[in-house]
Design a protein around this nucleic acid. Structure first.
Lengths: 326, 326
DNA sequence: TAGCTAAGTGACAACGTTGTCAGTTTCCCG
DNA sequence: CGGGAAACTGACAACGTTGTCACTTAGCTA
């Protein structure tokens, strides 16, 4: 910057002004621009954010960037922030609580202006000091544990209830449910929606029809086999999340069956299966925009009490019979 | 840091030493550690990299992070770098040359220590000033245009030739090829492999059997229809990349056909189609490790001439008949 | 114990910016 | 043409670290 200033015959502060688009005389501007082009000068963002205290950068912490919903969310958040002049840095925790804390450290050390978190299932009280020190944080998908922040949630319960009602309307009374772990918000809510629908239709709840988070394809197959071996086996299936849906579709394949099936969470190619997979889709666009909106407000100094925004899901019916096979 | 030093009763330079794991007296260490914990101090990475000139951060520029190969590569690169104490920041250009240049700017402004680039199809001479100024850059997947750097490449040509030979061995003489654009390295190489195999088997090349980068499902369907309407239509198909495979599978579905089909690039759920999709898989692990290896060498001051590393592909046969239907 | 080495510590400058504030120029008005 | 406001400019400190180098202390050897 000093070199540029010398080249242009102005003070280096004037170069700073040009770089930041502050008003300068037309002539100074031209000479500085020319000098910048000539010397190939590039502003050092690190130094700027050190001095100013603002980095114009936001962090996004997800658990598995390859999942369709999270990837889509990341893209929408990035675009929305870019429009406001902010960069986005994404980190993927792979569901490990330790990685979540580690990335949080790193985000703070880089003095980001804000943070959007899709929390893993651990608790987040370790974020309290920064939150109270004025760092802007918004949670998405699940609320924080032991912490009070803005949250953007999907209507998990209603979405899952709708999916269940759809199968019940097809005449099913025995519905196998492949569930997320029940130790976290989304797991509990989606399971709750399943149960709500059963209760409303006076269908009895049978815990043998619920498999909690088979971690692999093989485990999903074993869970499926166990259900099929029941005296009164399920005639249709629900999945509580897309990774489960993929494992389950593999298991169906192994057993050469194509039962009526609905999954919470859309995923790529879901429409190309035979039969295509009907899904409950979370509105990543609205959720992402809501999160950015809340975050920007906080970053502008809003100190009102934390808010909760709930975004409805979409039911995407892709056809395929939902009638029992028998 | 000054506060921590006061709390511990040492000079702030000693705190710096503790934070960086340099040798200090046992007693100083304990008192500084205690002060750090008490005050919740966090080292400012930006300031550190400003002073030291090194950021211990590497950038990865891809064109579409949601593609299976690129995502996998990113994960491997991240793990390999983390092991050496480097952070990774990923940016996705969506194949837009402008975004590539823009991110490159941003990478430089953040004074990253190194950069791994999966280039879009534009040329990269704009990187020359930094490269000559000593910034470490490694290209992956495609070589740079108008620039000399280390490159890690897959054996595109051999992979595609193998896939084509596989179909020829099944008795096919008319093979439809859905190709990448032919204005870039991977497009040309894979097309070259297809042609090599035809030539070797004395099968004549018919350009009506080649569709260059249908951009949408609908366009893929139109291209497919055009081929099927030929007097001598194709009896098997090849895809030059996974996005094409997905469009083509949709098109097959529309026409209710399941012809023998092989795709370059593996993708998630390829094994769950009916019939499953046989693929040529790029070895993202070896390619990622090779890239990191080259980059670290450059970052340690290696100034030998640029090298080219070629990594073989794997042919993953997933079954399904490859015999002509007729 | 003098003399030397090794280990540890501290003072201070420097990294490349932006904020502050005082100074200078330009422009407009009466 | 004088006066005052507005526009612009520049000197300098500060952001939170690390590099350099000189200094102090401890430990060893002769």
């Amino acid at each position: 910057m000093i070199d540029v200033a010398r080249e242009a015959g102005v003070a280096f502060k004037t170069v700073s002004r040009v770089v930041n688009g502050e008003p300068v005389r037309r002539e100074s501007l031209e000479r500085v621009d020319a000098a910048i082009a000539k010397l190939g000068y590039r502003r050092n963002i690190g130094a700027a954010s050190l001095r100013s205290g603002r980095s114009r950068t936001v962090g996004l912490l997800v658990y598995e960037i390859s999942e369709s919903f999270q990837l889509s969310l990341a893209q929408i958040v990035e675009a929305a922030l870019a429009e406001k002049g902010y960069r986005l840095v994404v980190a993927s925790t792979m569901g490990l609580g330790e990685r979540e804390a580690e990335f949080f450290e790193s985000f703070c050390a880089n003095n980001f202006d804000g943070l959007i978190v899709l929390p893993s299932t651990v608790e987040q009280s370790y974020m309290r000091p920064e939150l109270e020190a004025g760092v802007s944080i918004v949670f998405v998908d699940r609320p924080p544990k032991n912490l009070e922040t803005d949250v953007v949630l999907a209507e998990n319960r209603e979405g899952m209830r709708h999916a269940t009602e759809y199968l019940i309307a097809g005449g099913h009374r025995r519905i196998g449910f492949f569930s997320l772990k029940l130790d976290n918000y989304t797991g509990v809510e989606r399971h709750g929606g399943y149960r709500d629908a059963l209760d409303a239709a006076a269908v009895s709840y049978d815990e043998r029809l619920v498999s909690e988070w088979p971690e692999t394809r093989q485990q999903a197959l074993e869970a499926l086999d166990a259900m099929l071996a029941l005296p009164s086996p399920p005639t249709a299936f629900l999945s509580g999340a897309s990774p489960l849906a993929k494992r389950l579709l593999w298991a169906f394949r192994q057993r050469k069956i194509t039962p009526p099936f609905v999954s919470y969470d859309d995923f790529e190619l879901a429409d190309l299966f035979e039969p295509p997979v009907t899904v409950v889709s979370q509105d990543s666009r609205r959720m992402g925009l809501a999160a950015v909106d809340l975050l920007l407000q906080r970053m502008q100094g809003d100190t009102t009490p934390p808010r909760v925004v709930r975004i409805p899901t979409h039911f995407i019916e892709r056809g395929g019979s939902i009638m029992p096979e028998a």
